[in-house]
Amino acid sequence: MKKKKAGKKPEKVKIKKIKVKKPPQPEWKTKPIGGMIFEAGNSLKYLTGTWKTARPITNYDKCIHCLKCVVYCPENCIKAKNDKKDHTEYQYCKGCGICAQVCPVKCIKMEDEDKFQE
């Protein structure tokens, strides 16, 4: 019995620990009044990825590169290269889990974010 169970090993996920660096925020004395913004595209500096409690991990061996996750991602943080799924930009991923939900081959697993934090 034990042997059978050992034969069906759960997929191993490589967990790489990363440090999340938040950009420094100005103090009230130096902040522009009225919460005004002067530069275009500064939302790139706003790392919404720090919010997430679950992280989508893609098993690229199973991935069929249908790019459904790329289209469905509300943060536009799953990137494709040469018509193939390339990587997920975790600094913007809020961990909503839509990619895992829409994946037809279920190759995306939502892993607990705690595991990745130092």
């Binding site: 902040k31 009044i33 919460g35």
Partner: peptide, 27 residues
């Protein structure tokens, strides 16, 4: 600041969440 200042364009009323709203209120 003026919204019609085309030389120095800027956004009015941007989202300021928990990490930046408080500073605006202190101002």
């Amino acid at each position: 600041y003026s919204m019609l200042d085309l030389q120095k364009p800027h956004s009015f009323g941007a989202l300021n969440l928990h990490d930046s709203y408080f500073e605006s209120k202190r101002q």
